[in-house]
C-alpha cells in the first residue's frame, strides 16, 4: 500500500496523534491542489467568467463603446431576432453545406487510405503519411492565401489544369471548358470545402492509421487462413474494429466544421464573398460583434451555435451507440 494513500494516512494520524479529531496536513495532502490550481484559476478567469458574462450579455442590447451603463435588458429578443434573421439562416445553411461537403469525403477517403498505407506500405509509410499530414500543421491563413492565388480566375493554376483536362476527349464531359470564376456564389462554397478537405484529410488518416495499429494481427491471419481477400478483410474486420475511432474522429469533424472560421474568412476577404455565399455562422458572429458592434446579438449567435454543436454531437453519439459498436 502506498504512502500517499489517504486511508493509510488517516489511520496513521489517528494512531500517532493525541487529538485524533483533526489530522495533520502533510505536504502531499495539499501539494496536488497547488499544482493543479494554475489550470483552474486560468479557466475560471478566462473561461468560466467570460462565458457566464456572455450568457448575460445575450439577453441585453449593448454597444460597448457606450460603457457598461448602456446595457439594456431585452429578454430573448436577441435570440428571436437571430433565429428569424435571413443572414443568420443563410450562414447556418452555408456552414452545414461546407461541413458535409468538406467533412464526409475526409472520412470516406481517410479510412481506405489508412488501410492501404497500413497494409501495403513498408518503409515509405511514414514519409507518405507526413505528406498527407503536412497541411494540418501549417498556418491556415498562409494556406488560404496560397489557395486564393491558385484559385484565381484568369491565371490560377487550378483553372489552368481544369481547362486543360477539359480539352481532352472523354474527360471533357467532367471538366469545364471555360475558366471558372471561383468568386461567384455558386462556386465559393466548393472552393472553401476543398481547402478544408485538403487541410484535414491527413489528420483523419493519421487517426485511423493509429487505430488500425491497435487491431490484433491474428484477426487478419485467421481471416487469411479462411481464404478472405484484402477487400473482405477491410469490410469485415477493419471497418467494424474502427467504429470507436470513427465515432471520435467524426465528432471532432463535426465540432471543427461547425465552428469553421479562418479558411472562409481569409478566402472571402472577411466579407463572406458575393451574396455572402461563403459566410459561415462563426463569421456571422464575428461580423455582428466587431463590424456591427452588436455584442448582445453576437453572444446569442454564439450560444445558438454552441447548442447546435452540442445537439449534433449528441445525435452522433446516439447513432454510434445504436449501432452497438461504440465501447
Amino acid at each position: 500500500m502506498s504512502l500517499s494513500d489517504p486511508s493509510t494516512l488517516a489511520l496513521e494520524s489517528t494512531m500517532d496523534k493525541a487529538a485524533p479529531r483533526r489530522r495533520k496536513l502533510r505536504p502531499w495532502d495539499w501539494a496536488p491542489y497547488v499544482f493543479i490550481s494554475p489550470f483552474f484559476i486560468l479557466f475560471a478567469v478566462f473561461g468560466v467568467f467570460p462565458m457566464l458574462f456572455s450568457i448575460y450579455l445575450s439577453f441585453h442590447t449593448w454597444d460597448p463603446a457606450a460603457g457598461l451603463s448602456a446595457m439594456r435588458w431585452v429578454g430573448i429578443e436577441n435570440y428571436t431576432f437571430t433565429l428569424t434573421d435571413d443572414w443568420f439562416q443563410k450562414s447556418v445553411f452555408n456552414t452545414a453545406w461546407i461541413a458535409v461537403v468538406a467533412g464526409a469525403p475526409q472520412h470516406l477517403i481517410a479510412i481506405p487510405l489508412a488501410f492501404f498505407l497500413h497494409t501495403a506500405f513498408g518503409r515509405w509509410r511514414n514519409a507518405v503519411v507526413g505528406f498527407y499530414f503536412l497541411p494540418f500543421i501549417t498556418s491556415s491563413v498562409a494556406i488560404a492565401l496560397v489557395f486564393t492565388t491558385l484559385f484565381s480566375r484568369d491565371y490560377g493554376v487550378i483553372n489552368q489544369v481544369l481547362t486543360q483536362l477539359g480539352q481532352l476527349p472523354v474527360l471533357e464531359w467532367i471538366f469545364p471548358q471555360q475558366k471558372i470564376d471561383w468568386g461567384q456564389p455558386e462556386y465559393t462554397k466548393w472552393m472553401i470545402s476543398f481547402v478544408v478537405f485538403w487541410r484535414y484529410v491527413g489528420w483523419n488518416t493519421v487517426l485511423y492509421l493509429a487505430a488500425m495499429q491497435t487491431i490484433p494481427k491474428d484477426l487478419y491471419e485467421a481471416a487469411t487462413m479462411d481464404g478472405a481477400g484484402k477487400l473482405q478483410q477491410f469490410w469485415h474486420i477493419t471497418v467494424p474494429m474502427l467504429k470507436p475511432m470513427m465515432f471520435f474522429a467524426i465528432t471532432l469533424t463535426i465540432i471543427g466544421n461547425l465552428q469553421l472560421f479562418e479558411e472562409p474568412f481569409i478566402i472571402t476577404g472577411g466579407t463572406g464573398g458575393i451574396d455572402q455565399a461563403g459566410k459561415t455562422a462563426a463569421m456571422h458572429m464575428y461580423n455582428t460583434a466587431f463590424m456591427d458592434g452588436d455584442f448582445g446579438t453576437a453572444s446569442a449567435v454564439a450560444w445558438l451555435l454552441f447548442i447546435a454543436i452540442a445537439l449534433l454531437t449528441w445525435v452522433n453519439n446516439k447513432i454510434f451507440a445504436k449501432s452497438g459498436m461504440k465501447d
Partner: peptide, 10 residues
C-alpha cells in the same frame, strides 16, 4: 468561438 466576444471585454 464561445469565448471570443467575452474575452475582448475581459
Amino acid at each position: 468561438f464561445l469565448g471570443m466576444i467575452p474575452s475582448v471585454l475581459i
